[in-house]
Amino acid sequence: MQKEIQTLQTRTALYRRERHSVALAREFTRTALADWDLKQRAEDIVLCVSELATNALLHGVPPGRGYRLWLSLPEAARGTLRIEVHDSGGGEPCVPAAAVTGDAEAGRGLLLVAALADAWGIGERLPGKVVWCEFRRGEGDAGEGYGRA
């Protein structure tokens, strides 16, 4: 019996506590997706990165600190793209229990992540936390096949 060895392609970047870092995180993600030839759901993936980076910037990064964006993808044709945003702040992110009104300019970040990603969650980190989301790859070639379970 032959055991399949699965290697990961990973990309990581550190960002300062600056507003333009969210745009840099989006561009970093677009570049990784293009390099990995991932086209399906690319805009959903970039939007989730934007929301997680924005939340880290606004709620999770203390002054003088930054956050890390980490992307990983198995090299096999099937697998799961994982996005992690690491910050050193306290608190635990959550999806609002009450619906956000149509005129609200904030409060939708994790609602969007929960709706678009196949999975998401929060992990511990000392100090701080890791907020992650995943997009599963389905049947098909590496550039296609992302879908919901």
Results as ranks from 00 to 15, higher is better:
A53F: 00
R108T: 14
G90R: 00
G64S: 05
E105V: 15
Y146L: 11
Q6L: 11
K3C: 09
V22H: 06
A76Q: 12
L8V: 02
W36S: 10
G79D: 09
E4N: 03
V131G: 00
W120P: 01
G145C: 13
G121D: 01
Q40F: 10
A13G: 06
Y15M: 00
Q2E: 08
P63F: 07
L58E: 15
I122S: 05
A77W: 09
A114L: 07
A149W: 12
L116C: 02
H20Y: 14
R148G: 10
R30A: 10
A99R: 07
S88E: 12
D141Q: 13
A106E: 15
G143T: 08
R41P: 00
G64A: 01
R82N: 07
A119D: 10
A114S: 14
A13H: 04
L116G: 01
A117Y: 01
E92M: 14
S72N: 06
P96H: 07
H20S: 15
V95T: 08
T80E: 03
E144L: 15
E75V: 03
R148F: 06
E43Q: 08
R17H: 13
R108E: 03
K39F: 13
L81V: 10
D35P: 05
E84F: 06
I5W: 03
T12Q: 14
G147Y: 08
I45C: 03
G89F: 04
A119Q: 06
A77R: 09
R136P: 04
E43K: 02
P96K: 11
E84W: 02
C48Y: 11
L58K: 15
S88D: 10
A119G: 10
A23D: 13
H59P: 03
V113I: 06
E124T: 12
W120T: 03
Y67N: 04
G145L: 09
R108L: 14
W132I: 01
Y146A: 04
L33F: 05
V131F: 01
F135L: 01
K129L: 05
T31H: 11
D87G: 09
Y67S: 03
P74E: 04
E134T: 13
L81K: 08
L14M: 08
V85T: 04
L111E: 11
R82C: 04
L52E: 05
A56K: 04
K3H: 13
A119N: 10
N55H: 04
T31Q: 14
S50Q: 13
G66W: 09
A99Y: 02
L8C: 02
W36I: 07
G90H: 00
V130P: 02
A98C: 06
T54S: 12
K129Q: 05
R65V: 11
R125T: 08
E92W: 05
E4V: 11
R30C: 08
T29M: 11
H86C: 10
R68Y: 01
A97F: 05
R16D: 13
G90K: 00
